[in-house]
Amino acid sequence: MKPDLALAYCRMIAQTLGVDQDGLGALVANTGIDVATLQHGDGFIDWPGACQLIHNAGQLSDAPDLALQTGLRALPAMHGPMGMAAMASPTLRDAMRVFASFTNTRTRVFRTDMDEDDDTITLHLTFAYPLDQAIRFLTESAMASAYACHVVLRGKPIEQGRACFNYPAPPWADAYRKVFRGIDVIFDHPEVCLSLPAHYGDEMLASHDRDLLWMAIQQCEARQETLRKQGTVTDQVLALLHQSHGQSSLDQVADHLHMSPRTLIRKLKREETRFQQLLDQTLSRRATQLLSLPHYTVAAVAEDLGYTDVASFRRAFQRWFGTSPGKFRQE
């Protein structure tokens, strides 16, 4: 089973639902895990299984804010060694760097990147799959968790910032504003991100513990190495292309993987794929994500994907989907 999502997060869904033993059975139906694994396992569930579990959760509850409420339960201690390292960090900025560095020890469904300018520190969430019911659920829960974790780490409310989502406001948008108290909630944004004032990053954490930080970082790095060895070459190439939004060349990816381009081509062939196929997969996925945002023009999508002119992007899109970007958006 691929380590796509830590089972701890599935348990939080169950806790939010508040279901009995029969409900737990319904929750794990057709997911590839049983009730005992859900309750006591410390491993992972693959993405198809996670999607089924999220679907089952929707059948068990009519609460539209289920994902948001689940995310509020995911405080630092629920994020394993990564959460421990964040809590033990010297400053909030250091804690945010921990989340950005080690999200992949808890899930492969999205990655977290951090950047900072004079005014803000931002955590960006980039998902490996197109927006659908399951990805929206995970977006809501991950963002609610990020917000709640930062409140806990600061030891006081967040009074400035932005929570941005890359889809239109849902009918339960008011629930977002109740969860993300004190900050602006923005829909139809080009990306999913949580931005906080830059000066928040300087705040010292009361939970800072140098020895605990060292031990937790060691555990996170060991987990990353284990996952790296488990992944196929295809997985590794897709991860690198995903990180660069498809802007990495064959030579750059091969260099990052410490092999020659010829060796990379040969290894991908053994796994019955090609670099161009993986690149097209990455670019086509991002194209559909951006086209779902009404304020993103076709020209803007083409530029984001690295095309020098719109005509080249239109030809590529036609090859990927058998239709034009404009018709795809209308559908």
Rank of each mutant, 00 (worst) to 15 (best):
L227Q: 10
K269M: 13
H242D: 06
L250M: 12
Q236A: 14
A222V: 06
V233F: 12
K267P: 04
G246Y: 01
S260Y: 02
C220T: 09
T234S: 10
E271G: 14
L227E: 07
S260D: 01
S244G: 01
Q236S: 12
L257Y: 13
L257I: 12
Q247A: 10
Q247H: 14
Q252G: 00
Q230S: 15
T226Q: 10
H258D: 05
T226R: 06
R270W: 09
G246T: 01
H258E: 00
H256P: 07
H256I: 08
R270K: 15
V253Y: 02
Q219I: 02
T226P: 04
A254M: 06
M259F: 08
Q219L: 08
Q219P: 07
Q224G: 06
S244T: 12
K269A: 15
H258Q: 09
I265N: 11
A222L: 08
L241S: 04
K229T: 11
Q243F: 03
E271P: 05
Q219W: 00
E225P: 02
L257C: 04
L240T: 06
K269R: 15
L241Y: 10
E272P: 01
Q218M: 11
P261K: 03
T263D: 13
L227V: 03
Q218I: 02
K269E: 15
L264F: 14
K269Y: 09
M259G: 06
M259T: 07
I265Y: 02
E221A: 06
T226Y: 05
